[in-house]
């Protein structure tokens, strides 16, 4: 047992692969007890506002972005999520559906689907197409994660970032869902990774972004059988301000 500073990392557990994220973080803590002995870290499921209030950081898992949005709205969690991501002390990471949920604008979304507006980006839901176009590929993340030069990423009916948005653009656009959150993230939007020439396309597809306290990835590190990505989020986001 550790007796360090208590830190609560929540995983949004409305729908999707939340147990995978929890298992990865617990595996990091169990495998590196000495490294984290100064902290008292707990990983919890977040389904209610009471659970969310306990959290210092939050992970929004993969799943169906519309399911997660509708359930959060109907169970009155949505306004609390708006507030949570607006608090720049709280670190947040979204994978796949989580990336869509964290964005400011959604292309190809469903009527009344909501997004939290924490990342100044536009995302395209199911950008690669249907399940038959889902794929696995090794990517080099060593530019931002030390030694992580061959990370197995899995893209499942994944979204991509189609636009980095500048400034506040609330004008109505046909077919684009815009966040109703009034928060505006003023940190610069950093592109962490672009998929080059995928499937012989000439476009570079943005699949990982960071903006201040918020991280978003199109792919699923929680399916990679490798916890380096989770450890990076834990060390460089969740614990950085505490160290």
């Amino acid at each position: 047992m550790t007796s360090g500073k208590p830190i609560v990392l929540g995983v949004l557990a409305l729908q999707g692969a939340f147990r995978e994220h929890i298992a990865y973080f617990n595996c990091i803590l169990d495998s590196n007890p000495d490294e984290y002995s100064n902290f008292d870290i707990s990983i919890i499921e977040v389904k209610t506002k009471e659970q969310l209030e306990k959290c210092d950081s939050l992970v929004i898992p993969g799943g169906e972005s519309s399911s997660i949005s509708y359930i959060s709205e109907r169970t009155q969690l949505l306004p609390h999520l708006y507030d949570f991501i607006a608090n720049e002390q709280k670190k947040t990471w979204g994978t796949c559906a989580g990336l869509i949920f964290l964005s400011k604008e959604i292309q190809n979304g469903i009527e009344n689907q909501k997004c939290l507006g924490g990342l100044n980006i536009q995302v395209n839901r199911n950008a690669f197409g249907r399940q038959l176009n889902s794929f696995e590929i090794d990517l080099d993340f060593s530019k931002f994660i030390k030694g992580c030069d061959k990370f197995p990423t899995v893209f499942i009916r994944a979204p991509v970032v189609t636009k980095i948005l500048d400034g506040n653009c609330n004008a109505v656009e046909k077919g684009i869902i815009k966040s109703e959150n009034t928060y505006h993230n003023s940190a610069p939007t950093e592109i962490l990774y672009e998929l080059k020439n995928y499937n012989n396309s000439n476009n570079d597809l943005i699949v990982a972004v960071k903006q201040g306290h918020i991280l978003g990835t199109s792919f699923h590190p929680e399916l990679s059988d490798n916890y380096s990505f989770h450890k990076w989020f834990l060390d460089d986001f969740v614990l950085k301000s505490c160290k």
Partner: peptide, 28 residues
Amino acid sequence: GLAQMLKGGVIMDVVNSDQAKIAERAGA
């Protein structure tokens, strides 16, 4: 992986697009 993303969710039988849209809007 796709099955893992469906976890915690509901998959609904539908016989036409109208029902499918109702299911989708219900959060299926």
